[in-house]
Design a protein around this nucleic acid. Structure first.
Length: 587
RNA sequence: GCGUCGAUAGUGUAGCGGUUAUCACUAGGCGUUGCCAACGCCUAAACUCGGGUUCGAAUCCCGAUCGACGCACCA
């Protein structure tokens, strides 16, 4: 059994991850989070909130998981999130239809399915495998489609990403943030993609959890005011150039920006925060790197994109986070489809004085001459530039040409006047750029399981342990009476109650020998175990066991809650918690 | 979607046309037990689903579902 299998088996057995709908035969690409998995996930999300909501002052919102058609028209998911497929009638192999005609048509993406099929037929393209005849080209869209209300009147789609929820709330968010940049909104929630072939457990799901932040910034200044906080952090950068060499480069974020590896400070800042977050939830630093998208794999609108990748045995490097500069693509797309202006008015520090040409059409003359068109002619004149107005040889007969409703009209210069006036410009309309850190929570959770899993040998037996950070552990403390006896169980229950009052996640276990219970705790990743023994009754002390070292300390019962709290938030080290107990050997 | 292989208690398994479906671990109960999967007794628990062949199917055949791997797809 390799590590991946062991981790999956443990996750299933102990209640982290269960294949969904098992009772009815299951469905690929769906998982249940069990009694340990759900809190683990929740705690990872809470740490994410700590980093990307609280620390940054971002706003968390919650949008519907079903979206109306317009959203995905604008986002490009309707057209771009589907692939034209064709299959061989002989050997049943399936191909991307547009890929087969790449060498004939420059931009096969632009063709409709029928056109692609026509092209395949005309060029007598057969199955690349066996030469067999290819089927009709059909569309496979990765979005789940549904209908809103009865009678097919309105089409809805399950969202393929949470990001759009932030984009389409841009005007409201802008107001909320008092009309000024930068600001950001985040969302943690389910997204849905009807994957052709979900694989690798929780790595590619049809329903999955994303945590995304859309950070709206002024495109003219991509420095970050808090960059100094992260600039000395060292990390493994796997840049475009480094990928050619096949070797990551370790450097500080400061250096990475200076060398132009990362496009700008703001992107680098959020890559750094992403890095810190991943370490905080328990991703192993030596199995983590940030890989830059190559120019050809980046979305055409993105300026720069860095993926956090983790190493998982058997699967290799897996993407778990993407941090991209999406520029103004999304806002412009939504502005154009929805016909709502999605720009921000940015005030200058100082109003700028500027010469401006003011055109004054002489409506007394234009009116009788152009009748109902007069207004349009006037507007057309106002829209002209100084050069155009001054155009011609300057003689009195010179005429200016304007186009009104597709009709070219010549206008004598005495029908209008213009003058240059000084005006104060107080700011400009800007479509913000968007920095998007996008996290795959399920993948991160799986990574935490994988990177936390380790085995050692205790008393000749293999001991499987999940070395969760206390901050993510689904159970923080287990209270264990040394034996199942009334005089021990009673005080132990009291300690459990006391710890729960402190808000700790406490488990209580009296089943089986103490050793067996320790093993169960190890597999659940519970960092500390409190044992109640006869010394508790005689001397008022309890034992705290450390999951990772298996060593134990004695502490007075009245201190145990404080000590555990301090251990859990890492303000003291284990050996500082109490008197170390010499290892007791079994006979 | 395609191909190869697989699917038996919670987990790992035995089974090869007729068994009360094997064993271990696990889990629950009782007893015992002074700190790392101890011991004894008891208990619970499975042939993925649907068809077919056969007197008889966990076993052979077909299909579906799920899983692993490869291809393709996806980020």
């Amino acid at each position: 059994m390799d590590k991946n299998e062991k981790v999956n088996e443990l996750a299933r057995r102990r209640g982290f991850l269960w294949p969904a709908f098992e009772l009815y035969g299951g469905a690929a690409g769906f998982y249940d989070y069990g009694p340990l998995g759900a809190p683990l996930k929740r705690r990872i999300e809470d740490i994410w909130r700590q980093y990307f909501v609280i620390a940054e002052g971002f706003a968390e919102i919650e949008a519907p998981t079903i979206g109306v058609e317009g959203i995905y028209q604008a986002s490009g998911h309707l057209a771009g999130f589907s692939d034209p497929l064709t299959g061989c009638k002989e050997c049943k192999e399936v191909y991307r239809a547009d890929h087969l005609i790449k060498h004939i048509i420059e931009v096969p993406d632009a063709l409709k399915n029928e056109e692609i099929y026509k092209c395949i037929q005309e060029n007598e393209i057969g199955c690349p495998e066996c030469g067999g005849e290819l089927s009709q080209v059909y569309e496979f869209n990765l979005m789940f489609k549904t209908m809103i209300g009865p009678g097919n009147k309105m089409t809805g789609y399950l969202r393929p990403e949470t990001a759009q929820g932030m984009f389409i709330n841009f005007p409201r968010l802008l107001r909320y943030f008092r009309d000024s940049l930068p600001f950001a909104a985040v969302q943690i929630g389910k997204s849905f993609r009807n994957e052709i072939s979900p694989r690798q457990g929780v790595i590619r799901l049809r329903e999955f959890t994303q945590a995304e932040a859309e950070i709206f910034i002024d495109p003219r200044d991509k420095t970050h005011p808090r960059f100094a906080e992260v600039k000395d952090i060292k990390m493994k950068f796997y840049s475009r150039q480094a990928q050619e060499k096949g070797e990551e480069e370790e450097m500080t974020f400061g250096e990475a920006v200076e060398k132009g590896l990362v496009a700008h400070q703001t992107l680098a800042y959020y890559v750094a925060r992403t890095y810190q977050f991943l370490l905080a939830v328990g991703v192993a630093p030596d199995k983590l790197r940030f890989r830059q998208h190559k120019s050809d794999e980046m979305a055409h609108y993105a300026a720069d994109c860095w993926d956090a990748e983790v190493f998982l045995d058997r699967m290799g490097w897996i993407e778990i986070v993407g941090v991209a500069d999406r520029t103004d693509y999304d806002l412009k797309a939504h502005a154009s489809v929805s016909k709502v202006d999605l720009s921000v008015f940015v005030h200058y520090d100082q109003p700028v004085k500027r010469q401006k040409l003011v055109v004054k059409p002489d409506f007394k003359k234009l009116g009788p001459r152009f009748k109902s068109k007069a207004k349009a002619v006037g507007e057309a004149l106002k829209a002209l530039s100084a050069e155009e107005l001054k155009g011609g040889s300057g003689t009195k007969d010179d005429k200016i040409k304007v186009v009104v409703d597709g009709e070219t009209i010549e206008i004598e210069k005495d029908l209008f006047s213009f003058e240059s006036v000084e005006e104060e410009v107080r700011g400009i309309e800007i479509v913000p750029h968007v920095i998007e850190p996008s996290f795959g929570i399920d993948r991160i959770l799986y990574t935490v399981l994988d990177h936390s899993y380790y085995e050692d040998v205790a008393d000749g037996e293999i001991r499987a342990v999940l070395r969760f950070k206390p901050a993510v552990a689904p159970i923080e403390v287990a209270v264990l009476p040394l034996m199942d006896r009334k005089e021990l169980v009673g005080p132990a229950r009291k300690i459990q109650e006391q710890l729960r009052c402190r808000g700790m996640r406490v488990d209580f276990d009296i089943s089986g020998s103490i050793g067996r219970r320790y093993r169960r705790c190890d597999e659940a990743g519970t960092p500390y175990e409190v044992t109640v023994d006869y010394e508790t009754l005689e001397l008022g002390t309890v034992t705290i066991r450390d999951r990772d070292s298996m060593s134990q300390v004695k502490v007075p019962e009245w201190q145990v809650a404080d000590k555990l709290q301090a251990l859990l938030n890492a303000s003291i080290k284990f050996h500082e918690a109490g008197d170390l107990v010499a290892a007791v050997k079994k006979e």
